[in-house]
């Protein structure tokens, strides 16, 4: 049975006559748009499920209701909330990078540092940030600073890990080449180890940028009067469930766009890092 199916697909593949080209181009279109189609059918199922089952709005609003709630809020208000969240998330992300890279370089360069710092970083990472966030706000007040700090605490770890593993995965031959040339240690970092870490770094960045959004939202949950996280919390506490869902979807969309942006930057600046050659 199985073999029969296999041989059939094989023979159609091999001949590929013109009358099949329409069918195959439809198939191609389908496979290209698969994520979009899946999303659409999911939304449709949701919509009809809500309508047929007469699910109350405060439990699970239908997509159409959420969309209406979204357009009910003026664009300026959305932008205000967006800017507030984005500012904190992006600044937190950038500061995370600025802190993580020197830390990683230090840990790669010095065994002493890696032995003392790594456990400390793991402790910070494994502390539930949601529990610490109120403390940070109490200590640092309610400005942007404590929120950015919370964001950093949540997003720096994947970058440190990515940078150190990336730099440690440099082929030992290249390190020996560097040593045989008696090059300055700083050049070993800049010209060999850091570039080698670029593919790893960007995987770390992708995780970290979505964590930054989470960090910003957590900070808004604790204390804020602006921001998408604040908006969701505020809407929920007033039982404006469709509005809360609208805020939630907006947040996911922002996360997704930032993730894609990181991908785009990698593709633009480091195209070689996407197609890993076989040599390592």
């Amino acid at each position: 049975m199985n073999t029969q199916v296999k041989s059939e697909t094989l023979s159609t593949d091999r001949t590929m006559p013109p009358e099949h080209s329409l069918r195959s181009s439809v198939a191609l279109l389908l496979s290209r748009q698969a994520p979009l189609l899946t999303l659409l059918s999911f939304l449709l199922a949701w919509e009809f499920g809500c309508r047929l089952g007469a699910v109350p709005e405060y439990l699970l609003p239908a997509p159409s209701v959420i969309l209406a709630a979204f357009t009910d809020v003026e664009a300026v208000r959305w932008l205000g909330h967006l800017w507030s969240t984005l500012r904190v998330a992006l600044l937190g992300f950038l500061i995370s990078i600025a802190v993580s890279l020197p830390l990683a370089v230090g840990m790669v360069r010095s065994r002493y540092l890696s032995r003392t710092l790594y456990p400390a970083l793991v402790v910070i990472q494994s502390t539930p940030i949601v529990a610490v966030a109120p403390l940070i706000i109490v200590i640092l007040g309610t400005g942007d600073a404590p929120r950015i700090l919370i964001t950093c605490l949540i997003s720096f770890f994947p970058i440190v890990v990515a940078a150190t593993t990336g730099m440690m995965s440099t082929p030992p031959e290249l390190i020996e080449l560097s040593r045989s040339l008696k090059a300055r240690p700083s050049r070993e970092i800049w010209q060999i180890r850091l570039p080698y870490a670029v593919p790893h770094l960007f995987s770390g960045f992708k995780v970290a940028i979505t964590l930054s959004i989470i960090g910003a939202v957590v900070a808004e949950f604790v204390a804020a009067e602006q921001g998408l996280g604040y908006f969701v919390q505020f809407s929920t506490s007033y039982f404006k469930i469709p509005q809360a869902f609208a805020g939630l979807f907006f947040l996911s969309a922002v996360s997704l766009v930032l993730f894609k942006l990181v991908q785009f930057v990698q593709k633009r600046l480091f195209p070689w890092s996407l197609s890993e050659p076989k040599q390592h």
Binding site: P171, L181, Q191
Partner: peptide, 23 residues
């Protein structure tokens, strides 16, 4: 070396001059 271990972000010419740049 046993493996060529070229730097994947540099083109052939830059890889060959790399020892001078590095040193």
């Amino acid at each position: 070396f046993q493996k060529p271990t070229l730097l994947p972000w540099l083109n052939a010419l830059e890889n060959v001059v790399f020892p001078v740049r590095h040193k």
